[in-house]
Design a protein around this nucleic acid. Sequence first.
RNA 1: GGUGAGGUGGCUGAGUGGUUGAAAGCAGCGCUUUGCUAAAGCGCCGUGCUCCAAAAGGGCACCGAGGGUUCGAAUCCCUCCCUCACCGCCA
Length: 427
Amino acid sequence: MLDIRLIREKPDFVSERLATRGGSDEAKIAEVLRVDAERRKIETQLQRLQADRNRLSKEIGAKRSRNEPSEELEVQVRKIGDEIGDLAQRASALDQEQRNLLLEIANLPHESVPIGKDPSGNRVVRSWGEKPQLSDPADHVALGQKLKILDLERAAKLSGSDFICFTGAGARLERALINFMIDLHTREHGYTEISPPFLVRRDCMIGTSQLPKLEAEMYGLEENQLFLVPTAEVPLTNLHRDEILNVADLPRKFVAYTPCFRREAGAAGRETRGIIRVHQFDKVELVKITMPEKSYEELESLTANAERVLQLLGLHYRVVELCTGDLGFGSAKTYDIEVWSPGQNAFLEVSSCSNFEDFQARRMHLRFKDRDGKNRLCHTLNGSGLALPRLFAALIESYQQSDGSVRLPEKLRDYFGAEKIEMTKHE
RNA sequence: GGUGAGGUGGCUGAGUGGUUGAAAGCAGCGCUUUGCUAAAGCGCCGUGCUCCAAAAGGGCACCGAGGGUUCGAAUCCCUCCCUCACCGCCA
């Protein structure tokens, strides 16, 4: 959520910056300004009447205590009370309207973000490693079938298309990767491990800005108004919602494993083959809550922390800086980390590291008390560290051997309990 | 799920209809005293919104949330949420 004061004071600047995302929010800006002006007008009238009422009511009290008649005043105040009721209703309706409008206006891109309409405007900022030399690489679906570590047919039987069922060594590999990543981030990168609820209230979803915009993509339980988390970003960032943190406690750094649930209406095709895009997937997520002065520094280190996973696994990847047109709704700046998938012959996004600045913090009233004792909004950041299915796919594709087995990178062997995944007769 | 008790400022905790935005204590900040530390004394010390070009300074709202009663509600009534305790059920 943007600061209404910024919109009020620099509407042209805000509109211009929003326009770089493509899709015009200018109408919304004009609308929110209109509502804001009206709201303040009504509130001022309302407050004058309330001041009158307070003053006269005190007089009534004083008169009564002196046993003087007060009926005249009472009649007068009752009349004021009616007007107040009217105005109060209008004021709160306007207030609600203003908030609803603000909730649907995207964040301003950071000034360093390249201007662009669509993904073609993104900029590769670095890459690491090299494509593995494989003559005719099988993709993860074929490998998974042969090795009996992935059973998409039966997953579909259980839950429909675009669900995953890992079996045997596949399930174990998934678990090994989760443990490996969480250990890395807690032991070497200083994150605190959290095991949060997988169901959260609507307020949390609004706080991290999945709602109201993306309601159609979320799974919800209507009867008790809970949502299945689309990412651990939601519970982790909301941990300190409605709190005022001590500056000495910043930055807060959290890591969590959760499943992620998404409707993802997208069409089937090569982009969605196998386990690349599914309705439920596992992810290890990193979240930081920082003071504003430090957030861009923290974005760099967060991205580096996520990259470290791929480096230790020896997987080729690149880091892409998203342009204004490809930026997520709440993000001011985002780096995507894309791992090389020999099977798809393409880079796959396994992490999206973003700085939301105070966009989420304003929605969730997440503040800190600075050294002067002033309350200020925190900045929030998050990034996957990393998303499992695509990592799984890239990993087995990259490390496939000519005999059809998969030789695991060193770092994973202890976690997995073996050096390689081989064909088995039975599952 | 049932019963009971409760939800007040950073914390503890008073307050059952009128100058209470809220006693008191703790913590915090400033000043004074002081060889250092400690202690003592004095003062300051919630948040949001709004008026004013702005500062200074006003005003309004907020005692879990939302309604209601009343001239006036932290205080009375209703609904909901949450916490705690016990019981039931259960991996």
